[in-house]
Simulated scan of single mutants.
Amino acid sequence: MTRSRRHVLHAVAAAALSSLAFGALAQDAWPAKPIRIVVPYAAGGSTDQLARAIQKPMEDFLKQTVIVDNKAGAGGTIGTDLVAKAAPDGYTIVFGNSGPNAIVPLMRKIPYDPVKDLRPISVVAFTPMILAVPADSPAKNLKEFVAQARQKDWNFGSVGNGSLSHLTGEHFNALAGLKLTHVPFQGGAPMMTAFGGGHLQAAFVTGLDGAGMLQAGKVKYLAVATPQRTNVVPGLPAIAEEVPGFRSVAWFGVLAPAGVPDPIAAKLHEAVVHAVSRPEVQKMFAERNIEARSTSPQEMAKVIRDEMAQWGEVVKRSNIKME
């Protein structure tokens, strides 16, 4: 090998090592500017409330400003797409949930691949869907509800066509042998208002959606959609006791653009785990019938895959489509 060629190779190797060292230093210094958590729904909703609950604890852990940025629209897919296409530097992440990350992609074409374009960081919370009925419903328990619904022309509300609450109702129809008519609304607030006005016979709600009306005595909970009874919503039977095999549990969590480097993804994961473990976060979630629980990125990826498989069958069976 000539002396000049050796010189060139040494120079290339030195440049490569320098580049790696610079990258390592840059990641060690991360975060060097504010981090934006995109919430793909309007301010004040369930997803927004949970994202804001972990905002301050994440700031404390990362010693950097964390901003919650609401980018609502198209069932959560507008804000999620924004993050999927963001620079993979960890400064733009999304507070996702079952909808835009597992369910909506089953029913219509979206501008991102929920599996390939986003990197799971950690689940933040799980919340079972709860069968709610008006306070004056003639059904006093789950068994009575199923028996009476088979004989009457009852309906069920949802927070929107193609939402988890919609799919849960259709899944319930199929497994319980019912024909409850679906009535979609534009979000949880108008759906719960319809309860107060006596326009619905049932709905599957999260603890966040139902809390106000439950406390006001306008709705009552009959059963929870976990496979067994759960302390997350104490005192309620599991729907599966009357309708074997029934399950519907929503999740909320943090995802980043797919190309985020491992060290930054690991630091984000540590920040989320810290936030979820904080007593004030645990208390706030528990008061709303939500389980605060972090996961590994691999566990979160499996949650998404399993959910897509479960609800894919329901979408196909019920021929559910979204515009």
Results as ranks from 00 to 15, higher is better:
residue 199 H to K: 15
residue 97 N to W: 03
residue 181 T to W: 02
residue 323 E to A: 15
residue 147 A to I: 06
residue 127 T to Y: 10
residue 261 P to T: 00
residue 278 R to L: 12
residue 223 A to N: 06
residue 55 Q to G: 05
residue 65 T to H: 13
residue 30 W to R: 01
residue 260 V to F: 05
residue 154 W to T: 08
residue 286 A to Q: 13
residue 214 L to G: 00
residue 25 L to F: 05
residue 106 L to Y: 00
residue 231 N to D: 14
residue 42 A to R: 15
residue 145 F to A: 06
residue 66 V to K: 14
residue 249 V to A: 01
residue 61 F to G: 06
residue 74 A to V: 10
residue 36 R to M: 07
residue 259 G to T: 12
residue 62 L to D: 08
residue 233 V to L: 03
residue 320 I to K: 13
residue 80 T to S: 09
residue 321 K to I: 04
residue 179 K to W: 00
residue 211 A to Q: 11
residue 3 R to A: 10
residue 119 R to P: 05
residue 45 G to W: 14
residue 88 P to L: 03
residue 10 H to W: 08
residue 203 A to F: 08
residue 291 E to S: 02
residue 207 G to E: 00
residue 234 P to Y: 00
residue 9 L to M: 10
residue 293 R to G: 02
residue 25 L to K: 12
residue 57 P to E: 08
residue 84 A to E: 07
residue 68 V to M: 04
residue 310 Q to A: 13
residue 286 A to H: 10
residue 109 K to Q: 14
residue 267 K to D: 02
residue 109 K to G: 11
residue 131 L to Q: 01
residue 79 G to I: 00
residue 128 P to C: 03
residue 177 G to S: 13
residue 245 G to N: 13
residue 246 F to S: 01
residue 173 N to D: 01
residue 156 F to Y: 14
residue 56 K to M: 10
residue 58 M to Q: 13
residue 289 N to C: 10
residue 196 G to K: 15
residue 276 V to C: 06
residue 72 A to G: 08
residue 252 F to N: 10
residue 70 N to T: 01
residue 137 S to K: 00
residue 141 N to R: 01
residue 79 G to W: 01
residue 121 I to C: 04
residue 311 W to P: 08
residue 30 W to F: 08
residue 134 P to T: 06
residue 322 M to W: 11
residue 184 P to G: 09
residue 153 D to P: 02
residue 258 A to S: 10
residue 277 S to A: 15
residue 258 A to W: 04
residue 149 A to L: 08
residue 150 R to D: 08
residue 101 N to D: 14
residue 115 V to H: 05
residue 268 L to Q: 09
residue 146 V to N: 05
residue 264 I to Q: 05
residue 5 R to K: 11
residue 278 R to A: 12
residue 227 P to Y: 09
residue 62 L to I: 14
residue 230 T to H: 00
residue 319 N to Q: 14
residue 318 S to H: 15
residue 44 G to A: 03
residue 183 V to S: 13
residue 12 V to W: 06
residue 318 S to P: 04
residue 80 T to P: 04
residue 102 A to I: 07
residue 100 P to M: 01
residue 138 P to V: 11
residue 69 D to W: 01
residue 278 R to N: 08
residue 191 M to N: 09
residue 126 F to Q: 09
residue 134 P to I: 03
residue 285 F to H: 11
residue 233 V to R: 02
residue 261 P to W: 02
residue 41 Y to Q: 08
residue 297 P to C: 12
residue 291 E to Y: 04
residue 144 E to Y: 02
residue 127 T to N: 09
residue 305 R to L: 03
residue 83 V to D: 00
residue 277 S to Y: 04
residue 189 A to F: 01
residue 22 F to D: 14
residue 224 V to I: 15
residue 18 S to D: 07
residue 88 P to K: 06
residue 245 G to P: 15
residue 255 L to T: 13
residue 73 G to W: 07
residue 224 V to L: 05
residue 247 R to S: 06
residue 118 L to M: 07
residue 288 R to A: 09
residue 261 P to D: 00
residue 100 P to H: 10
residue 169 G to W: 11
residue 194 A to H: 13
residue 252 F to W: 14
residue 163 S to P: 07
residue 157 G to Y: 06
residue 224 V to K: 07
